[in-house]
Nucleic acid binder design. Structure first.
Lengths: 135, 135
DNA sequence: ATAATTTTTTGTAATCAATACAATTATTTA
DNA sequence: TAAATAATTGTATTGATTACAAAAAATTAT
């Protein structure tokens, strides 16, 4: 994806494609490791010397409201962010602390949802041991 | 459940059944509304005049470690607690902010988990609109 | 029983993620 | 080009949670 791709994606979602928002969104797309706001801040601060922490939060909130980014409530102490917005599951390895994405069949998700309830978003979290740590 | 039932449950789980821990656990069992530490603190402060906020946190952490209580990461700003420890799903209504439990078939959960991964705990969160608010 | 040891509770202080706010800067519209 | 609007920035604040050390309670050893 080129710089102008990001620009047009933001525009299409109704938000002004500022340098900062593009940088944050680009970082999330390139780093699908569910980074925290602080992780993003520290990474971008190296590239762009002046980049306020508040702007990271502002940009993330804007991107979430625009539907381009999802929040992931994996750890209670800090919010994590994800540019993959289609429904998918998260596996958190309790040994290596790695976070793994996995596909989620939308129909299965539908079946899980209790009758009469209409879900907009579904999250599935597993915690346990990943294949590598199981050995 | 009588007071002595709670006492023996805590004992059986290897933690000393202090007045404070019993009160916190009893509150969680009687109030399956996924309260926050602060909600529990305010409720118990009325009954027991001296009851430290720190003790609530200590007791909750002890109960979670003992496997009697689960944490629920519904809202990012504060941790919620749940005395129902078997796998079940949570539906959060975005209109009335209510939290609804629903049954979860363990086999379905098993199928969702990717191959090679061993899960200890599974959480399913839906956010959307509850039946009442859908009308 | 009583003393010594361990565990729990308590209150205050500290931490840390996230937000509020007001001033500055950049962008868009008139 | 000026006026209006939107975004960014830095600092101050909030609020949940934890750290810590002293006091109280409970357990164990003498």
């Amino acid at each position: 994806m080129t710089e102008s791709d990001f620009t047009s994606i933001l525009s299409r979602h109704g938000i002004r494609p500022t340098q900062q928002r593009i940088a944050v969104y680009k970082y999330l797309v390139s780093n699908p490791s569910h980074p925290s706001a602080d992780t993003i801040y520290r990474a971008l601060s190296e590239q762009y010397p002046v980049f306020s922490r508040t702007t990271i939060y502002n940009s993330l909130n804007t991107l979430v409201e625009a539907g381009l980014v999802r929040t992931v409530n994996i750890c209670p102490e800090e919010q994590r962010f994800d540019a993959t917005i289609d429904d998918h599951g998260h596996f958190i390895c309790e040994k290596c602390n790695g976070i793994f994405d996995f596909d989620l069949n939308p129909e299965v998700l539908d079946k899980l949802c209790p009758e009469g309830f209409k879900f907009r978003q579904g999250d599935v979290f597993f915690s346990g041991t990943c294949p590598d740590c199981s050995r």
